[in-house]
Simulated scan of single mutants.
Amino acid sequence: MTDQHRCVTLVPLFNHLPDTDQARVNQLVSHQTVNKGEQILAPDSDPRLVIVARGSMKVYQLSASGREQLLRVVEPGGYEGENVLFGARNENLFSEALQQTEVCVLRQDDFQALLLKYPQISLKLLEINANKMMGVEQQAQFLSMARVEERLASYLLDLAKASGSSRVQIPMKMRELATHLGTTPETLSRKLKQFADAQWIERDHQTIILRDETALEEI
């Protein structure tokens, strides 16, 4: 299977289709390589669905004061932009490559034609968007916790639950994780050190091993 077919086979929105239909979908997408720090989506972008094939991109919005608020990190198989394709206005949503990232782009007209041709994609889209909304609710829950250590412990436990392992990989830089948790990089670094000193976790850069999940749950 070629790299040109990679986006369609990765994304759950399309990979349930038969191979012949996946190939037809693939003919509609354009493939792009985006360098680290380059913007992929912005309020003035043309309506389009962006699928990540390799690398990752962050999705964020700006507060009234211009402060960046991270919403999620999109990794291979994930996508962004579907709401705008349905007519919603993008007034404050941006995405940016976190590293050199390969994406597949599907234009609005082609996407809407696919929904008419393959109704099962609409059902899959509803399912995946429900999971996205859960992520947004989780973000709101993080920010409602008074203490940073509560947010950090909850985040690490959720990562472990999602991966099925006590060894987790932080999918973003510490600066971006700090933004996600509503704190500063300095405070986040201090809290991670406190967790490590208490032997609740063991940290090696972006890799964290949860040594005492009970202690983290009690936080």
Rank of each mutant, 00 (worst) to 15 (best):
S154C: 09
D109T: 03
Q112S: 10
Q141G: 10
F111K: 04
M134T: 14
S154L: 15
A153Q: 01
Q139W: 12
L143H: 09
C104N: 02
D158A: 08
A153S: 11
Q139C: 13
K132M: 09
N129S: 09
E137H: 12
V136T: 14
E150Y: 01
P119H: 01
A130E: 15
A153C: 02
L143S: 11
S154E: 09
Q108C: 06
V105C: 05
L156S: 09
P119M: 04
D110S: 13
L157N: 09
K124N: 07
V103F: 03
V148F: 00
V136C: 04
K117D: 15
L126I: 09
A113Q: 09
M145G: 04
M145D: 07
V136M: 14
C104Q: 03
R147A: 04
Q108G: 07
L156V: 07
L123W: 11
Y155M: 10
P119Y: 06
L126Q: 11
I128G: 04
P119R: 00
D109L: 05
L152F: 10
Q108I: 00
K124C: 06
Q108A: 10
R151N: 03
S144K: 06
Q141F: 07
L116F: 08
L123A: 07
M133C: 11
V103I: 10
L116D: 11
E149V: 01
